[in-house]
Design a binder for these strands. Structure first.
Lengths: 151, 151
DNA sequence: GTGCTCCTGACCAAAACGGTCAGGAAAGTC
DNA sequence: GACTTTCCTGACCGTTTTGGTCAGGAGCAC
């Protein structure tokens, strides 16, 4: 139930790409502006490229840019590209698990967990993230002072 | 963003304890009814005991039972007992992270992620799980056919 | 051709995951 | 008091994941 460094880095780099208004951005610049180890970031950007989220060109004037407009790329897209399926249980999707005895309804709980994650991750786009204008449901979740308390 | 075997096992074992109406239940019986490796389960139950969720007695007639009524134990309690804080980013709680540049609002997104997980995990009790009567918000999340689709 | 930048695979240390093993310590039974 | 039962605990173990680094190659621009 945690967010890996890789996913965090990936979203941050993508946010920088979303905010860039002109031409390809060099990996080095992304690494610097978000304080991410360059060589690790390059691997991450490669995964994003393979997932079709990012494009790249080499050589002088080369760099990275988003394959789609920032309004059409969600945080979920990016997290899935680098971490795989969201909310798997023991590396299997919850809908494929069969529970016995008194744990029978646990499947529905994990499904609900995944659904709740999706309502956040699939609705926040890179454009939202950069502008700070999060969808109202997400804003509502983050607005509660309770949400900021550790537990 | 995944649920470990340990957390899954812990909740399943706790569900069996919640459903037991009389006396302590042996670890062996829990292991059998939920098909969990016994020795691994014993370690998990020990963690639950240290967290104050479960109690135990040794010897003949010994076994495990819930320290509190099943209506007062949430899935979140159990997951935290075995996995630690929910939705940490790079092993740090989201409220403690400072984001720079265009990723500034990412903190709110991770906070919202945690809040959404909490709305499910903190509201489903062991009693709910065993009876199958999940809280209406959770039921609503799990009811959508979309929630059951892999992605 | 000469830089520049991305691309790729190999490698690496440390931690986490999912267990198993072996023995000790309480509680109950005879 | 001996014996059995059951939990308690720490040590260990193989594999995978995490979070990187290193070294070189391939494409692009000039």
């Amino acid at each position: 139930m945690r967010v890996s460094a890789k996913a965090d880095y990936a979203v941050r780099a993508a946010a920088e790409l979303a905010a860039a208004d002109e031409g390809p951005i060099k990996g080095e610049r992304l690494a610097e502006s978000q304080d991410i180890p360059l060589q690790f970031l390059e691997h991450i950007l490669l995964e994003l490229k393979h997932a079709g989220i990012v494009r790249a060109r080499r050589g002088a004037k080369g760099g990275y840019w988003l394959a789609r407009p920032s309004e059409e790329v969600t945080i979920a897209d990016i997290v899935r590209a680098v971490e795989g399926p969201i909310a798997n249980v023991q590396s299997a999707p919850p809908e494929s698990i069969e529970y016995r005895g008194n744990a029978e309804h646990l499947q529905e709980v994990w499904i609900a967990v995944r659904a709740s994650l999706r309502t956040v991750l699939e609705h926040v786009t890179l454009a939202d993230l950069v502008s700070g204008q999060l969808p109202s449901e997400v804003e509502a979740l983050a607005a509660s002072p309770d949400a900021w308390a550790a537990r």
